[in-house]
């Protein structure tokens, strides 16, 4: 399955916690490709796409962070008005619920990259490819 490994890190809302994560990764030469934070007043979940997911998981666990690995889909979205809407329509019509999505930091091509977390990855992939929407593999994303 053409999915990408995302790392989720539980963060208490206290000063310096996000810096701790990024420093731990930076010290090990791990590069962050995309990130997003969802938070309440008490805690947050940091979601990361990095160039070396396995190494990043190990580093963060060793540093005492609570981490989990999740499969997400990286979609190449045409960088023009209505580009994202087409992708969302496709998923919507296939009855696929999106838990969250966020955009990529780097630039892959002339297109934008959007990370999707959906309930049913296989069904989402099938729907997207049927509409000729390009989905990037893990290897492609990590190497960007």
């Amino acid at each position: 399955m053409v999915t990408v490994k995302q790392i989720s890190v539980f963060l208490e809302n206290k000063a310096g916690r996000l810096a701790d994560v990024t420093r731990s990764l930076g010290d090990q030469g791990i590069n962050i490709r995309a990130l997003s934070i969802a938070d309440t007043t008490d805690f947050g979940i940091l979601r990361l796409i990095v160039n070396q997911p396995e190494a990043a998981l190990k580093v963060l666990r060793d540093e005492g962070f609570m981490v989990a690995e999740t499969e997400v889909i990286a979609v190449d979205v045409p960088d023009r008005p209505g580009g994202l809407a087409q992708v969302l329509d496709t998923l919507g019509q296939a009855g696929i619920n999106i838990e969250y999505l966020y955009a990529f930091v780097g630039q892959a091509s002339a297109d934008a990259l959007v990370i999707f977390r959906v309930e049913d990855c296989a069904a989402a992939l099938q729907a997207l490819t049927a509409q000729n929407i390009r989905v990037l593999s893990g290897a492609e994303v990590y190497a960007l």
Binding site: S8, F43, I45
Partner: peptide
């Protein structure tokens, strides 16, 4: 911990 925000809530 699964990384799911909803699960934590």
């Amino acid at each position: 911990f699964t990384g799911s925000f909803r699960a934590l809530e």
